[in-house]
Nucleic acid binder design. Structure first.
Lengths: 168, 168
DNA sequence: TACCAACTATAGGACTTCCAAGTATATTCG
DNA sequence: CGAATATACTTGGAAGTCCTATAGTTGGTA
C-alpha cells in the first residue's frame, strides 16, 4: 500500500511520547501500536492467500474450526466462544458460507434455540486446501524465528489469561 | 463478551495442528492467532476508554498525530503514510472529525491536489485529554511486564522491518 | 405449575478497512 | 511544449467487528 519509510514510524511515536514526559507510557504505547500494525500485516497476507478460495480469514476460521471438530458440526454459540468473537459475527460469516455452499444450518436435536453448523463435502474440501496453502505460505514463513515464536506465544498467552480469555 | 474458558482455545488449536502432522506450522499458527486476539483485546479497551470523548481509536490516532506535529497540521497523504492505513481510511476518519469540529480541511499552499489537516482548538484539547486517559488507563496498565514490552517491541520491530514497513 | 431470568440466534445500525474507479493537479520526458 | 504518467483525494461498495434490541426456548424456583 505504501513504500517502505526511511524510519520506523512507531519508534518515532515512542520518541514523541518520551519528549512529552510520558516516560512510563512510551514503551507500552509503542507495543500496542506495533501489535495493531502486526495484526494488520498478517491479516492482509492471510486474505491475499485466501482470495483464490473466495474466502476471508473470518470465514476460513469458521470452516477450519468445523473441519477440526470430530463430527464436522458444532452449535453456533460454541463456535462463537472458541473463536472469541461476537455471536453476530458468526451469524454474518455463516450467512456467506451457507450461500457459498460450504456450510449448512441444521436444527439442534435437543435445544430448539440452537443451530448446528454442518460442514458440507465442498466445505471440507475447501477447508483442507486452504489450510494447506496457509501453512506453507503464511505460517511457515511468518518471518519470526523459532525463538521469537516461543517468546510471543508465552507472552501473549499470559496476556490473554490476565485479560480473562481463559483460566488455568 | 464471553466468560473465561476452561482452556486456552489457541493452545487447543495448536494441538490440533500438531495432531494433523503439521508440526512446523503449529506454533506460528498459534502466534498469528494470538496476535489477532491480543489486538482485538487492546483495541476493545482503547475504544471503551475513548467512548466518553466520542472518539474511536482510528480517529484518536489522527488527532493525536496532528497534536504531536510541530505545526498542528499535516497533509492527508502524510497522515496516511505515518499511520500506515489506506488513504480512504483517513478520508473517512477526517469526515467525522471535521463534523465533530476537531479538525479542519485547508488548501495546501503549493500543491492544489493536497489537503492540509488542521487541528482546531477543541481538537487540540480533546487530543490532549484523551492521550492523558489512554496513558493512565491503557498504556500504563497493559498487563505486560517491562521485560515483555522490551521483547515485544524488539521482535515486532524486526517483523515490521522485514515486512517492508521501513528500512534501517 | 406457572413465571421469570437466562440463553440462542438474528435484524438493524454504526464504524472501520480495503479495493476499484474517477477527478483534478503535478511532473516528466520526447 | 504537449502528451503520458504519477500523485492526492473522494466516492461507492463489499466485508468485518461490535452494540442494542427482539423473538423464541429453556430451566430453575416460588
Amino acid at each position: 500500500m505504501h513504500p517502505p519509510m526511511a524510519k520506523d514510524p512507531i519508534a518515532e511515536v515512542q520518541k514523541n511520547w518520551q519528549r512529552h514526559g510520558w516516560v512510563s507510557a512510551a514503551a507500552p504505547a509503542a507495543t500496542v501500536t506495533a501489535i495493531m500494525r502486526t495484526q494488520q500485516i498478517l491479516l492482509g497476507r492471510a486474505q491475499e492467500i485466501l482470495k483464490p478460495f473466495d474466502l476471508t480469514f473470518a470465514r476460513y476460521e469458521v470452516i477450519s474450526l468445523l473441519s477440526f471438530s470430530r463430527e464436522k458440526r458444532m452449535p453456533m454459540n460454541k463456535a462463537s466462544q472458541l473463536l472469541q468473537v461476537h455471536p453476530t459475527s458468526i451469524t454474518n460469516a455463516v450467512d456467506r458460507l451457507e450461500a457459498a455452499g460450504l456450510v449448512e444450518r441444521q436444527p439442534h436435536d435437543s435445544d430448539r434455540r440452537a443451530i448446528l453448523l454442518v460442514l458440507t463435502q465442498e466445505g471440507k474440501r475447501i477447508a483442507e486446501q486452504a489450510t494447506e496453502v496457509l501453512n506453507t505460505e503464511l505460517f511457515e514463513q511468518t518471518g519470526f524465528t523459532t525463538e521469537e515464536i516461543e517468546d510471543l506465544n508465552r507472552i501473549l498467552a499470559n496476556f490473554r489469561e490476565r485479560a480473562g480469555d481463559f483460566t488455568r
